[in-house]
Write a protein that binds this DNA or RNA. Structure first.
Lengths: 344, 344
DNA sequence: AAGCGCGCGTAGAACGGTTTACGTAGAACG
DNA sequence: CGTTCTACGTAAACCGTTCTACGCGCGCTT
């Protein structure tokens, strides 16, 4: 048997060590900038790494140490609000070794769990969950396995994981106050459809609480109307149509997210209603299309970028060892546009 | 030193083997449904797996074999067209072992390369690149390292990787024909900004070719106008405004993607133009918001779901060993709405 | 009956990092 | 000058899979 010519080998940590004339462990220390390497050694090693174009093998790292991968779990990709959050996360990870990878759960608790498992199986160092559909005990269970930060899930009863939120009650209050000041009296709230594990931890529930309180405060308790609808175009439009064709239709609809507000706007237009003359519409998240002239949608800005940035920061702290839970809250801000302002 | 009580150990392939009373390799074979296991043995092993709740350790798998992870590289998250593609990919992977994970490059070639590296480092089995900004030689280089399928990048000169596209020339032709039939004569094309590596492989260039040919065909060569603009709201709006404030403004604008068409629509509305009376607008991708009454945007449907589905199928074939490149093409379809139809 | 191929299963060597346990040299100290 | 630290490096074990090479027994051919 003739010897097979040595084909181009992978550059491993061993190759680097040899080239730099040091031990394998020394190179590893440099990579993880761990304690116990002199500047001289660090320099030699880094030179070799650059020269050889060495890249650490993530799977091998995952066997013992970290993978420097963070999971980002989103409910869906149609709502551009999540893009804002990602932007914030990217900003936070800019100069770090961490790489974010996304999973999309399609707003289904089952898929969400499967994705969490998949991410844990891949030894990700931590996960950011956005708008999770999981009940709190499931989240606790996950948190005991792998560091997580949960965005848009209110910490009720001192959970064992970090959370990042905007003040949803305040957001809803701002909406009601804004509408009432503009003369609208029958303000309805169009919320998300109820899931299996409905609870006060959900942002839509928090918004509902704020909405109810503010309506009460304004002396409009009798006009409180809450409708729950699914995420699809059809469901949202049907709900809107039903509300607007009722005997006493609302003169303003507060939608739990912009996405839905645009569907309501579409229905209103189809029905020949004037916005905001016959109907005012408000969204939530202040996503990019709110600003388009054909929408001109008043919305609540909860700054997705900040949420993402803080979530990433908290997650890395967790990974580095923090065990005490932290909860970050952003103050929302109302951005008024034509959909609630007759004059402009 | 007192012995530390044995804490709950991870369930490994060894645990399963022991429980089922077989060898480790036998379990591995069952997991990968490889050749050489009897039904009896397979049953025993699967029972143990279920009983113990065993989950294979992806990092360990990555050391030797596959990770059953596919990378999905998207340019950005604001354009909901990519959500459609993901839907298709998910459909294709439904009953497979493969798990898709997303990376977002922010439409920057540098970030894109970094993400590809990151995915390769993590031993992903293959990558689907959507709307890549990389020049063809870079793609070839990547393809030699890891199986890839490229969506929205036309195969020119027999590249060594698979591609999935719609017929962009035809799409543009359909647009021009539709507009001309409706009586519009000065049809402009609002395309993507030119990058460093501009070429015929780009979908926007293909659309431009189709547009020019169709205009020529219609005897409107003298009215050909092509404008390139960036992705941000401001850039798109500025470009639109400039076009519309010119001495001889177009009476129809064909935008390379819906996203941009909505910005143009916004500008038109701001300028008090009637759509489609003064200006017809057409987009591309037929994303969900085209159907909203306030937009009612005529668009080209290239079926993101099909693109995603086929890409995933091709990628898995590649991973399983195919070496001959394949190129899948979808026939686009025009969906007419009010933005080009005065009557409706 | 020896030989052969086939179907099923096994033992053990990789894979490429991280981490532990342990040298070793030089400085500081009494 | 011997001892004790401290700072830096090293060798080797280890992580959980996959994969290669091989063993065994059975039935079929010659």
């Amino acid at each position: 048997m003739v010897a097979i010519p040595t084909q181009k080998q992978r550059v491993t940590i061993r190759t680097v060590a040899e080239d730099a004339g040091v031990s394998v462990a020394a190179v590893s220390k440099v990579l993880r900038d761990a304690y116990g390497v002199s500047d001289a050694l660090r320099g030699r090693v880094q030179a070799s790494i650059a020269k050889l174009g060495y890249r650490p093998h993530a799977a091998a790292r995952g066997m013992r140490g970290q993978t420097y991968t963070l999971g980002l779990l989103m409910p869906d990709l149609h709502n551009p609000f999540f893009a804002d959050i990602l932007e914030g996360v990217n900003t936070a990870l800019q100069r770090s070794q961490y790489q974010p990878l996304l999973g999309v759960s399609d707003s289904a608790a089952g898929t969400e769990l499967a994705l969490i498992d998949a991410m844990a199986d891949r030894q990700m160092d931590g996960i950011i969950l956005i708008g999770s559909r999981l009940p709190i005990n499931e989240l606790e269970r996950v948190a005991s396995r792998i560091p997580i930060v949960v965005i848009a899930h209110h910490p009720i009863g001192e959970p064992d994981f970090d959370t990042v939120n905007n003040d949803d009650r305040l957001g809803a209050t701002l909406v009601v106050q804004h509408l009432v000041a503009a003369g609208f009296k029958h303000v309805a709230y169009l919320s998300q459809e109820l899931g299996a594990h409905n609870s006060d931890t959900m942002v839509t529930t928090q918004r509902e609480i704020g909405y109810r309180a503010a309506m009460h405060e304004a002396g409009l308790s009798r006009n409180i109307q809450v409708v729950h609808a699914g995420q699809t175009s059809r469901e949202a439009q049907n709900a809107a149509r039903q509300m607007l064709e009722a005997r006493h239709p609302p003169d303003a609809i507060f939608c739990w997210t912009d996405f839905i507000a645009l569907e309501v706007l579409s229905v209103a237009r189809d029905m020949g209603l004037d916005v905001p003359g016959d109907l005012a519409i408000v969204g939530y998240d202040n996503t990019w299309y709110c600003d388009l002239a054909q929408n001109a949608l008043t919305s609540i800005d909860q700054s997705g970028q900040v949420l993402g940035l803080q979530a990433a920061r908290l997650l890395i702290e967790r990974i580095k060892g923090r065990t005490q839970a932290e909860h970050y809250v952003v103050t929302p801000r109302l951005v008024a546009r034509r959909s609630t302002q007759p004059g402009s």
